[in-house]
């Protein structure tokens, strides 16, 4: 089969693939490289090797406080998004409620809606209904944009599962609730986990929503990095970014080990 592809096309495919790799991995390599620099400036390739900027990041209150805020926020967003997203996915999958098509378009709309439009709208709504922005407005905003990912991944898993499992459980003596907990949710688990992973990441590196919806006393890590970059750029931003990447990789490996993420990636 491979032999049937003309050499020119194959060469083009290889070049295209290398370009994709370069643009996806290139920035990560640069960030990681800069973070290990021994010098005082953001330059690539790094001037010498050291861990001084990691020490600087880990000992600076502005970074550790904003990291804790971001982690707390991401954890709460993950919790809310998985609970809501799973419930919505199961409901949409059953197609028993009228207007399923419209509802599904509505809950998935944050995927296509420009974040800045949504951020501005939510800020105005929050201000007129609740008042001052706070940690809770951030939580709400992040959750709304994270929920569609959980819905998508959970629906993907449900679509491939045997549609008669729930009925079979009922004929085996399980009522609706026990069917949900013993049959439906275990089916959804890989999707929920993958969706939760997306939710965590989206919240953890979301900057636009956070800029609009935070109160001045709340600093998240992406905003801290951005502020640092704008006012006094030094390689600490690279070290902080590299730590974020490391956390993401750790999460991917952990989830893959536990549940097999490839089941929902496809």
């Amino acid at each position: 089969m491979v032999e049937a592809v003309p050499t020119g096309v194959r060469a083009a495919a290889v070049i295209f693939m290398l370009l994709v790799l370069a643009f996806v991995l290139g920035p990560l390599v640069v960030v990681a490289g800069v973070s290990f620099t021994a010098g005082d400036y953001v330059t690539f390739p790094p001037e010498g090797l050291s861990l001084r900027w990691y020490r600087a990041v880990l000992s600076a209150d502005v970074y550790t406080h904003s990291a804790i805020t971001s982690l707390r926020l991401a954890a709460l967003v993950t919790l809310a998004a998985t609970v809501i997203g799973t419930g919505v996915a199961v409901a949409l999958h059953r197609r028993r409620i009228p207007g399923t098509g419209f509802l599904s378009a509505l809950v998935l709309s944050p995927l296509v809606l420009p974040t800045i439009v949504f951020a501005l709208g939510l800020l105005m709504l929050w201000s007129s209904v609740v008042g001052r922005t706070s940690f809770y407005s951030l939580w709400l905003g992040h959750t709304v944009i994270a929920v569609p990912y959980v819905i998508r991944t959970t629906l993907a898993v449900l679509a491939t599962s045997d549609p008669f499992l729930e009925e079979a459980a009922r004929t085996m003596g399980a009522g609706p609730w026990r069917t949900l907990f013993h049959v439906t949710l275990p089916q959804c688990l890989p999707g929920i986990a993958a969706g939760g992973f997306f939710a965590f990441n989206i919240s953890f590196d979301e900057a636009i929503l956070s800029l609009f919806l935070r109160s001045p006393d709340i600093m998240t890590l992406p905003i801290q990095i951005y502020t640092q970059l704008e006012f006094s750029p030094d390689p600490s931003i690279a070290a902080a970014s590299a730590l974020m990447i490391a956390l993401t990789i750790f999460l991917i490996v952990a989830i893959d080990r536990l549940l097999g993420i490839q089941r929902v990636a496809a």
Partner: peptide, 14 residues
């Protein structure tokens, strides 16, 4: 007081 065998068997995969 019934039990049913489905065409797809409907075994719980987990």
């Amino acid at each position: 007081d019934i039990a049913m065998v489905f065409q797809s068997y409907a075994l719980l995969p987990h």
